[in-house]
């Protein structure tokens, strides 16, 4: 009897050591996303089972010469949607920035900055539209889930 109890205890200790009876907290630990060269552990923004909703406000202006108010509204809305897509792409994918400064005789002659983004956006929706004094604003939303990126 004593031998079997000792054997059970020894097996339990070895099993614990091997990690068979790990607590749920350890199993559900998320993988770290390492950013840059510093190697700090950064938790991923998207977590399984949770949706990340990004909301942006796109703005568009009606052209000064249009055939009708309806056309002005339609064109301003399209420009606003394009702006909304740009903002979504910039927030999800990131933006590429290039800067150039020209210096002559120790004085800044010209400074220019160029930002660009190129992306394919899937599943963005227009939630709300307002049009006031030639300015159209559209509220756009995109829901990101872990499963979309886990493949």
């Amino acid at each position: 009897m004593r031998i079997s109890a000792a054997l059970t205890l020894a097996l339990s200790v070895s099993a614990l050591h091997a990690g068979f009876f790990q607590s749920d907290d350890k199993v559900s630990n998320v993988k770290c996303v390492y950013s840059g060269t510093e190697g700090h552990c950064v938790e991923p923004v998207l977590k399984s089972g949770k949706e990340l909703v990004i909301t942006v406000l796109g703005q568009g202006v009606a052209p000064s010469v249009t055939a009708s108010p309806a056309q002005a509204y339609a064109l301003a809305k399209r420009a606003a949607i394009a702006d909304g897509y740009r903002q979504i792409a910039e927030r999800v994918r990131g933006v590429q920035v290039e800067g150039q400064d020209s210096i002559k005789n120790m004085m800044l002659q010209q400074s220019s900055t160029r930002t660009s983004v190129e992306a394919v956006v899937r599943g963005a929706n227009v939630m709300n539209t307002t049009f006031k004094e030639g300015l159209c604003e559209v509220e756009m939303e995109i829901a990101l889930s872990y499963t979309q990126f886990a493949q």
Partner: peptide, 14 residues
């Protein structure tokens, strides 16, 4: 609402 491709460029000079 399905797929949209976007290419955006913004230049700031002064």
């Amino acid at each position: 609402s399905q797929v949209m491709q976007l290419k955006s460029d913004q230049t700031i000079v002064g």
